[in-house]
Design a protein around this nucleic acid. Structure first.
Lengths: 116, 116
DNA sequence: AGTTCATTCAACCAGATGGTTGACGATTCA
DNA sequence: TGAATCGTCAACCATCTGGTTGAATGAACT
């Protein structure tokens, strides 16, 4: 479907910028005001506002107003879409690591899951 | 680390194009010649060659020559990096690979370029 | 009402991107 | 050797991107 391709375009393009990835990382912990999101960066507030627009268009961030403050919230829907697309690579990797994984399980090295 | 950010930039930017994602999908099944990868697209061979260059720079594809034919192969290293970054967004298969890779590197079973 | 704070919009600029065409290097085949 | 095939390179073009600054919007404070 064409709309799905467009959405993947926007999601991956949105993540292809270090400022936007940092914004996403900041939003993982909690919702933030636009100005608080912009504070760590040297660029202007307008530039960060544009970055937020890109993230919103990609479906990765949503905003809601409370008085004169706009709160930004992470929206996992888009991220899930990208992750689903990438799952194919997991299968590819599984093919490559299949033999080694078997060897590891023979050695009992895959049993304990409490590893850091 | 700056180099890691640059690499994530290149990986996500590489995936932000439907032609390149289609190339990657084609390579999931098997290795392909450049001209075979280009065949399904309406754009020129030179354009597809450029797309491949982007994928190679991102560490998602590698090439090797056999006579006058260049074979293209998927390279999961870069994809693992992107998946690990996205892991914070919830349940995801990359976690399995991270544990596995950790065990593999402990045993020295992993190639050096898989854990920079 | 006027002022200040929070955020966006508009216009502009330099550099990146994706596409084309035609020439070119490398390799194979007759 | 000459001709055909595989792929890249170089130059060019239109469009997108990320940044700036200054004006504009919307809400709150005095």
């Amino acid at each position: 479907m064409q709309a799905e391709q467009d959405k993947l375009d926007r999601i991956f393009a949105a993540l292809a910028d270090p400022t936007r990835r940092e914004i996403v990382r900041a939003l993982l912990a909690q919702d933030r005001k636009v100005s608080d999101l912009a504070a760590p960066f040297e660029s202007s507030l307008a530039a960060v506002s544009k970055h937020l627009h890109v993230l919103i268009e990609a479906g990765l961030v949503s905003q809601h107003r409370d008085g004169r403050i706009k709160w930004c919230r992470l929206d996992v829907e888009g991220m899930h879409m990208a992750m689903r697309w990438m799952e194919g690579f997991g299968q590819f990797a599984a093919r490559d690591f299949e033999v080694l994984e078997h060897r590891l399980s023979e050695l009992g090295l895959l049993a304990d899951d409490d590893h850091p």
